[in-house]
Amino acid sequence: MNALSVQKVSKVYNKTVQALRDITFEIREGELFGLVGPDGAGKSTLFNILTTLLLPDSGDIKILDMDLIADYKAVRQVIGYLPGTFSLYPDLSVKENLDFFAVMYKSDIEANMDLIRPIWRQIEPFSKRKAGKLSGGMKQKLALCCALIHRPRILFLDEPTTGVDPVSRKEFWEILQAIRTQGITVLVSTPYMDEATLCDRIALIQNGSILGIDTPEAIMKHFRGSLYTFRSADIFSLLNALKQCPLQCNYYPYGEHCHIAFYEDMEKAMPQFLQFLEEQHQEHGEITAIQPSIEDCFIEIVKMNSHE
């Protein structure tokens, strides 16, 4: 059975802004599905629709075989939602927030403690602290506990790790992996490309449309360019020089390296490129062909779509 089936969903704001355009995808039960896209792509609009907070203009959505609109009350019982902005009560304590959500869902904290224990253990020492006084990582852990306390079958997480440091992000994803072993389906959006590779499948979304849905491995396999990496003593000067490069290519900084994807016959193009760098007096390290990462794929797909 599909946990979620979204068919041709569209949404227009103020008659002018097309936030979503014929969005269609399905998520299998128990899947960890990632929604990856730039700001303003429509990710949060989609989350608001899927969590029954906003009506789509058209399209059909089924959650665990229930109609999202007709059965919205029943749907709310089986979903958990972690919104993109911190939405707990800042002036209630950690424990009071959890109690509040448990009461609202008529759920028993003790009965569901096994599900949240690994997370709860980390915030329990602060259970009397006001939620508004927690650090960013702690807030997210508390919000996740509150979203899970009624043991939902589908969990919606809208950018749960934005602004969270690398160590806490890693912990958060370990928690997500543990949650799915409990049979909970997860739909998560993220601006971090390294997190996209941790999903079973991902959908790339831009300007309200889905550009592609596949496993991270398959998306990386479909990279169209020939990708190379190299180092430069002065990356800013290099990037400026590359603006004049006559070859069909797409270049960008990537950590300490420069990545460049060519859309050329490389046997001819590489000597031309080396000559170009020399003419521009650009000192560089060895130029090595590499396999693209999800971030490379995302950049390629978005650039191709903005040109077409």
């Binding site: 700001d39 601006p191 900084p253």
Partner: peptide, 13 residues
């Protein structure tokens, strides 16, 4: 924070 890979690079530029 929360900005996509392309805009992040534009920002660093």
């Amino acid at each position: 924070s929360g900005v996509d890979p392309i805009v992040r690079r534009e920002f660093w530029n």
